[in-house]
Every structure is written in C-alpha cells, then in structure tokens.
Amino acid sequence: MAEPRYEEVGVGTRLPTLTHILCRGDLVVYAGASGDFNPIHWSERAAARAGLPTVIAHGMLTLGIALRTVTAWAGREAVLECGARFAAPVSVPDTDEGVEIVADGIVAEKLGEGRVRVELTVRCGGEKVLARPRAVVRLS
C-alpha cells in the first residue's frame, strides 16, 4: 500500500484496522527488549497478589501494537509523537490462542506542515484498553 499524501488526506480519513494476537511468549520477548521484568507480566502468583485475574500485558507493549495501525498506514519514520493512558489491563491467558487486540484509527486534525493527528481506538474483548491513544504523523 502506498503511503498517504498530506494533500489527499482529510479529517475523517480512516486507517485500516489492525488485529493482533498477543500470547505469553510475546510478553517474555517484550520484557527482555524493554527491561521491564515486573512479575505481573509473567507470574500468575504475582498477578493474583496484585489483585489481577491473570498475567497482564505491558501497557507500552499494548500501545506499540496499536501504533502498528499508524506505521502500516504512513510508515515507521512518519510517527513524530504518540501517547495514551492505560484504561484497562490486557489479560493474557496461558493458551496457544492468546488474546486478540483490535486497533483502528482516524485522522482527527490536519496540523499543517504535512502533519496530522490520528486518534486510535484500541480494544481487547470489546473493551477499550487505552484512553486517548493518539499519534502525530508527518505525511509527504
């Protein structure tokens, strides 16, 4: 897919939906890459002690997965900034099926100088797991 051009994009332009299956092994890989070895991301006992139903995904991993919606649309180098609040934990079962994260986005504002603000919606099990996820992207 060709990267979008600023002149051709308008407020309301929808980004393609991304569906990602997240498994326990992904949490291990992310922990190693990020250095975040908090046991709530790998130990059932630690998750239970913290009052969680099971092991949960790292919040920044969830945001990173959601941002793939933007990078698939505009390219990795296009993302200038991003942010979100963590609204709900993503419980990751100890199964081969894992858990499904679904993300989509919409151009919310044209900022000028080739930049647009994209607002994302990120759900797991039908529940929004990130609040106000957004990115500023530079288009050609």
Score class of each variant (00 low, 15 high):
A131I: 02
E7H: 09
D96F: 13
V118E: 00
G75T: 10
V136F: 07
V136P: 01
E44H: 14
C23F: 00
D36W: 08
T19H: 08
V137T: 00
A135F: 02
L80Q: 15
R123A: 01
V90G: 06
V9Q: 01
G51Q: 14
W73T: 13
G112A: 14
E127Y: 06
G126K: 03
L80K: 15
A46R: 07
E7N: 01
A108H: 08
M1P: 11
T121F: 02
G114H: 02
A66D: 08
V118Q: 00
R5E: 11
I65Y: 10
E119W: 02
E81F: 15
V70P: 09
C82W: 15
L22M: 05
E3F: 10
E109A: 15
R134Y: 08
R68D: 12
A78M: 05
L139C: 05
R117P: 00
N38A: 04
V137M: 00
V129F: 09
L111Q: 01
V90M: 04
E119P: 00
L15W: 13
R123L: 02
A72G: 15
A31Y: 05
I101N: 01
V55S: 05
G64H: 13
N38C: 04
A135M: 02
A47R: 10
V118D: 00
V92F: 01
T121M: 05
